[in-house]
């Protein structure tokens, strides 16, 4: 991500002469294969806008996103083949079963039927989907839905996994399950970018953390590096110091 900037048009009600709203203002960072990178910031910091630009859902006003060496906006379809994307609200088709949803996305990625079945088996084993694989999504619990949604994001075995507050709607146990899974996927060589406003989660799983506030990257590094830079004893304190800084 190089020099990412995104402006939004002012609302009409803001009246004549309103300036555009800058959601993300010149963000730079990179994520390596096998690494979990956490975007940490309060609500409205610009995390979701950044994540959406990485996923190709929003165009940057300035700057660019490179994925596997290629600029995302140059060939969006090619970039999407390498990318798994997940949001807090799961994005499951309520009248379909997890198996049907996985099949649908695998087909969109051009998988054969045999390869699709193979992937579904593997994901089912990794994520414990077996008991609800053929139950309609509308009848699943929140935790089950999120597991099915992660399986959906992983079905094409992407090199990069982008998650926007994936644990926001989950209880502690379900959230831990997801975080553990991210570790496993990173160990398999995936680059993982994951946004959150929970310090403990970031501390638990992230190899490196970028702290965003008001659209700008305030600091970046490992937990230790952030603590050293701020001379604080906990990530929460370090975060507050960085966010409070003018």
């Amino acid at each position: 991500m190089r020099g990412l900037r995104r402006e939004f048009e002012p609302e009409r009600r803001q009246g004549p002469g309103a300036e555009p709203f800058v959601a993300v203002d010149g963000i730079d960072f990179g994520v390596l294969q096998g690494e979990i990178y956490g975007l940490l910031g309060p609500n409205g910091a610009g995390k979701t806008t950044t994540i959406r630009m990485i996923a190709g859902l929003l165009q940057p006003t300035e700057g660019s996103v490179r994925l596997m060496g290629r600029v995302v906006t140059d060939d969006l379809l090619a970039a999407k083949r390498h990318l798994g994307y997940l949001t807090a609200d799961t994005g499951l088709y309520s009248r379909l079963t997890p198996r049907e949803i996985l099949r649908f996305f695998a087909e969109l990625h051009g998988f054969s039927r045999a390869r699709t079945d193979e992937r579904i088996e593997a994901l089912s084993a990794d994520l414990g989907l077996a008991e609800f694989l053929d139950r309609r999504a509308e009848k699943l619990s929140s935790g089950q839905k999120q597991r099915a949604a992660i399986a959906r994001a992983l079905v094409h075995d992407p090199a990069v996994l982008v998650l926007d507050e994936p644990t926001a709607a989950l209880d502690v146990l379900s959230a831990k399950f997801i975080l553990d899974l991210l570790r496993v996927e990173a160990s398999r060589g995936k680059a993982i970018i994951f946004s959150t406003h929970h310090m403990s989660e970031a501390e638990l799983v992230c190899d490196r953390i970028g702290i965003i506030h008001r659209g700008r990257m305030r600091a970046e590094g490992t937990v230790e590096e952030l603590l050293d830079a701020t001379q604080e004893t906990s990530l929460t304190r370090a975060f507050l110091r960085l966010v409070d800084a003018p």
Partner: peptide
């Protein structure tokens, strides 16, 4: 509204 469109738009489909 169901939040599935974002997911669909991140799949490789024009």
């Amino acid at each position: 509204e169901r939040g599935t469109l974002q997911t669909l738009l991140t799949a490789p489909i024009a």
